[in-house]
Design a protein around this nucleic acid. Sequence first.
DNA 1: TCGTTGTCATCAATCGATTGCAATATACCC
DNA 2: GGGTATATTGCAATCGATTGATGACAACGA
Lengths: 342, 342
Amino acid sequence: MANKVTLKQIAQEVGLSPSSVSLVLNNRPCRISEENRKLIKEVAARNHYVPNQIARSLVMRESRTLGLIVPNIESRFFASLAGSLEKRCREDGYALFITSSGGSADDDLELLRQLVTRGVDGVFLVVGDEFSDDRALREEVSHLPIPAVMVDRAIEGLECDKVMFDHEMGGYMATRYLIEQGHRRIACLVNARRSNTGRKRLAGYERALREVGLPIDARLEFESEYYIPSAYEASEAVLATDATAVFASSDNIALGLLKRLHEMGKSIPGDISVVSYDNSAADVLFEPALTAIEQDPGVLAEHAFGCMSKRLAGRGGRRAEEVVLEPALIVKDSVLELTKHN
Amino acid sequence: MANKVTLKQIAQEVGLSPSSVSLVLNNRPCRISEENRKLIKEVAARNHYVPNQIARSLVMRESRTLGLIVPNIESRFFASLAGSLEKRCREDGYALFITSSGGSADDDLELLRQLVTRGVDGVFLVVGDEFSDDRALREEVSHLPIPAVMVDRAIEGLECDKVMFDHEMGGYMATRYLIEQGHRRIACLVNARRSNTGRKRLAGYERALREVGLPIDARLEFESEYYIPSAYEASEAVLATDATAVFASSDNIALGLLKRLHEMGKSIPGDISVVSYDNSAADVLFEPALTAIEQDPGVLAEHAFGCMSKRLAGRGGRRAEEVVLEPALIVKDSVLELTKHN
DNA sequence: TCGTTGTCATCAATCGATTGCAATATACCC
DNA sequence: GGGTATATTGCAATCGATTGATGACAACGA
């Protein structure tokens, strides 16, 4: 374990002042003899000198570092988002610090503070979906000294750049598609109690039904958290209905459902049709391949970075920007077309 | 977007010196009147004062922050490792900065520098598996001014704490199990060309065969990257052999294999048995459930943090510590027991 | 000899916090 | 009232780098 080498030490060794060393190593326009330049660079290299960014950003007031807070890095969707975002940041010379909060507003707040006080130039926030008490978090975000972009989900009523897919539209598209395929009794399995996105997807589901005059039947609306076991538990009740199709509002929910279906010896789409959400596990073999509403994390990342970039360049407008992206329906093999004899 | 508030400003507002404010806000033992204490805290709160960690760690020379570099955060295994590690760090009051390199040694190096110069107190490295040119990286790691712990994989010949599962043992266990189930023609699909771990797993596979006197047949050893499409491509050749079982040296490889198997109408384990690796997608429905060698990322994280913790406390030995963990065989339904009539 | 120009390099302030030591004010004691 | 304790608070250096302002010195012309 080597010691940290400082500018001053390098300066001492070459017999010049710290200023000169700094100037040379940063390739600033300055009048230092070619001879000394070489010497400085050589000594710096030999000593494995790396400038202390902490000291540097203290005076420069920028770190070319961005932060990201996701609720759970172990989720495929967020992992993918984080991956895309990091690549994008790096392209522009920013490092991205990815943090995972566990989903509670308190942890979110703590991480946000950590990032801010560590001098990131901006933060991407995937927070505020769960209905934990987020007043403190909201307060903090609204007083942030750096730009923030909310991604995928938002804290309600907060003036802040937002980039997200239209969850209501996604729910609508999924349901609409099932209707078009001749389904009339369509159940849904959503996380409406604890998630804004879940609520919106549910709203879309209901709008699609309403639009064609189908009844909104509370007995067909089921609740599940965004975790496989939760959906697995909830699925039994779903299967006890007379629904011919289910709209599962996330991949994990679909996976839980599938597991239960499989155990009960039901086949898809023979016994029941399924439309899933996210499509984030599309590369994994499913039997059958799941028809799903896709929201590409890469696209989300691209737009989020765009917003951030503008703000960082001071080109952001006074008002918050709101980017709403349209999800896509990816048709595969999990929906049966019913002959229409309703 | 609020302005950043500094100690000095708070001091000015309360009419005391910055030192006093610092002392009070950090709850240092000092003799400041109760009255002023209250005043300071109130003003600080009202102004949303958050200490600038950058300035602070400059003088304190510690940031209570750790860094992690993984090759690809989108991989389930690394995502899970990152998640576990972050939780563990937080328990001890450390924030973890997760970065994802993309797998090239150059990017690893760049990220490592970023982390170090940003003042993390230590780094966890999941690097050095791919055979890119890692001389510079190795050089850098060996001159690091902070503790480093290599996790899951290591740069060969580098004196540095290491925590990893015994990959050779994993390959051995998988193959041994297949042999015990009566298989004699056992193929393997590994990433031996570009991965140390792959090489070791292959070595384990060969040891198991050798141990029972089975021939090591190069025609049964196939190469695949750790990505689904790569395995998918390679799988056709595997299926053209007379193997009754395949050892797939990662979950992704197994998934690619399964996809191809499925397309060819082959059933598992009826037509061919499969043992996979990682078991990181265990919660996902596979048909059938995959028998696999499991290496729990949580365990890896726990030990890695343990090493780091020791180093940070100065309790680390002079020599590097090396923790080798034994993987576990998780038996499920993808292996057929053959009646022994070899 | 003085002034001018040009070249090479350094000074010193600054970023925002921490902290050992010094300083001031008040109280207390004989 | 003189002197010591004690309670409060401030000074100034420090961490490691950046940068606008300045200085030193040589060569050259008049």
